[in-house]
């Protein structure tokens, strides 16, 4: 994607969103694609996955704010399941492709994508459509299934979790973009950005037997994405996290983007129709000061396409 296209699309979004959206065309001109107002959270609705990301990242200040030339980027989707994109158990492949394109356009040296999948990984990568989408966009796809790639780190601020084995790509990359898909979850009510981090961890099974919600919150004290992009284009409303059939899925055509995982999960839970206070790990993370559930204090840009 060329920067000029970015610009045009960003401008289009500004117009579409109407006068309430305070995007200054001057600011953009001078900043070369970056918006003048720095938003804490951007929510987009009504577009295709790629278009929604274009507008959201534009509004956040452009991908250049996060990805600098020559940097190593890791993008972590949810791709835990051997299901097709229509089943919405995995992150949308079009969205993944677009994020990879943006990162490469910003001069990223390498863009890596992986997940510690739950179903057999080669089938997940293939049938989710993510492997092909990412490779075609110029990204590199890696197995998340070799134990040797995970290294133990201490979780100083953890209440339940004291140590955790995290994938080296997360530990070593310059930029970490977390791209969960919003979906229902039998054990944790919803699975959004914090829950998605279980896919960068090796010894996660222990969590299930040791206060799962606390562990999910604990890991965010040490694993901190630079940016969270919540895919709510297709949303698995029930039988999550895997779903049984396409009839479990609704089309919401939405996307939420923010640096704050707690805010991301709070907004996404509301979008889903759940009270975020009912979701243990969101509440705990807020209490621990890992982010904010109070969306009224955030500068939010709401874009309807």
């Amino acid at each position: 994607m060329k920067r000029r296209d970015f610009f045009r699309k960003g401008l289009g979004a500004g117009i579409a969103a109407g006068s309430a959206m305070a995007i200054s065309p001057y600011g953009k001109l001078f900043a070369g694609g970056a918006a003048a107002v720095a938003y804490d959270l951007v929510a987009v609705k009504g577009g295709e996955p790629g278009t929604m990301f274009d507008q959201a990242i534009q509004s956040m200040g452009g991908i250049e704010k996060y990805v600098k030339r020559g940097q190593k980027v890791v993008i972590k989707p949810n791709l835990g399941w051997d299901t097709t994109p229509e089943r919405a158990a995995n992150t949308n492949p079009e969205l993944m492709a677009r994020i990879v394109e943006h990162c490469l356009a910003a001069g990223a040296k390498d863009v890596y994508v992986f997940d510690n999948t739950i179903n057999e990984w080669t089938r997940c990568y293939k049938n989710s459509g993510i492997e092909k989408a990412v490779k075609d966009a110029g990204g590199k796809v890696l197995s998340g299934k070799s134990k040797g790639s995970y290294h133990e780190i201490a979780v100083e601020g953890g209440r339940s979790l004291k140590k955790v084995q995290v994938h080296e790509l997360i530990l070593e990359s310059d930029v970490f973009i977390n791209v969960p898909v919003l979906k229902s979850h039998g054990g944790t009510v919803l699975s959004i950005s914090m829950k998605n981090l279980m896919g960068v961890v090796w010894d996660r099974r222990w969590w299930h037997a040791n206060n799962l919600h606390q562990c999910i919150a604990d890991v965010t004290t040490v694993v901190k994405p630079d940016l969270n992009v919540v895919d709510a284009y297709r949303v698995l409303k029930k039988n999550g996290p895997r779903g049984v059939s396409v009839s479990d899925v609704v089309t919401m055509k939405s996307l939420i983007i923010t640096e704050d995982m707690v805010a991301a999960d709070t907004a996404a839970a509301k979008l889903f129709g759940k009270d975020p206070n009912q979701i243990g790990h969101i509440r705990i993370a807020d209490e621990m000061g890992l982010g904010s559930m109070d969306l009224s204090k955030l500068n939010i840009n709401r874009i309807m396409i």
Partner: peptide
């Protein structure tokens, strides 16, 4: 037994023959 959240079984179940 321990009043803690889990759901691992249901999470893995492809047909929701075990549901939470």
């Amino acid at each position: 037994a321990e009043n803690t959240a889990c759901g691992s079984c249901s999470e893995h179940c492809p047909t929701q023959a075990v549901k939470m």
